[in-house]
Amino acid sequence: MTISTDLITGILGFVFTLLVLSYLVEDNPLFRVAVHIFVGLSAGYVAVVVWQQVIISKLLVPMLMGDWLQRAFLLIPLLMSILLLGKMSPRYQAFGRPVVAFLVGAGAAVAIGGALLGTLLPQIQASIALFDFSATNARPLTETLTEAIFILLGTVSTLAYFQFTVRGKSGKRNALLTIVGQVFIAITFGVLFAGALTAALTALIDRVAFLVQFFDTIFFSL
């Protein structure tokens, strides 16, 4: 009988699934071993992927096989990568600061531009559009209006809650608004919790289904 890869991966998956589920009893070494193994595997896998798909594929090979212009452009990221290695040593970490500054600056610029143009303005426009009754909308007006009022109330009350609660300037006039904001925030958290719980339940079902399938394969299909 030849041992197939699926059998090995199935056994490993079965074992590691039990190790993780052992956390139901309490925090135990088996669970820790499984967690450590998963973290190690993930880090190793990420390192291999980055090395293979980023450093070699997008830096070294073009540097060796590319033309002079391509190589010249690749010198900049290469130099910055070397300088960034200086962050590992306290003595030479100053060399990596410009690189980090460049990365943070570029990332912030991209993120802010994307948030402004891709999230803030479109969301404001969408919230305002809910009150555009002249616009052709397949949904009933009452439904749209109700949704618009809820969105508006939720947005204003949530902002009011953070504005007047954090700074401690909440007065009697803003008390009701902040309470409404708290309700909306609580509903939001409840939704997020329900989504996370549903996702976890789905993952549990996937693992249980794997175990059932594994047992079915091992004991009933042989």
């Binding site: 891709g118 999230t119 479109p122 969301q123 426009q125 969408a126 939001t188 939704v191 997020l192 329900a194 989504g195 996370a196 549903t198 996702a199 789905t202």
Partner: peptide, 22 residues
């Protein structure tokens, strides 16, 4: 399912044309 609450507004705003959640 855990990402739906935060990404649904993009569908409502028309930036995302369709969702399949969970």
């Amino acid at each position: 399912a855990q990402a739906e609450p935060l990404l649904r507004p993009y569908f409502d705003s028309g930036q995302v044309q369709g969702l399949m959640v969970g």
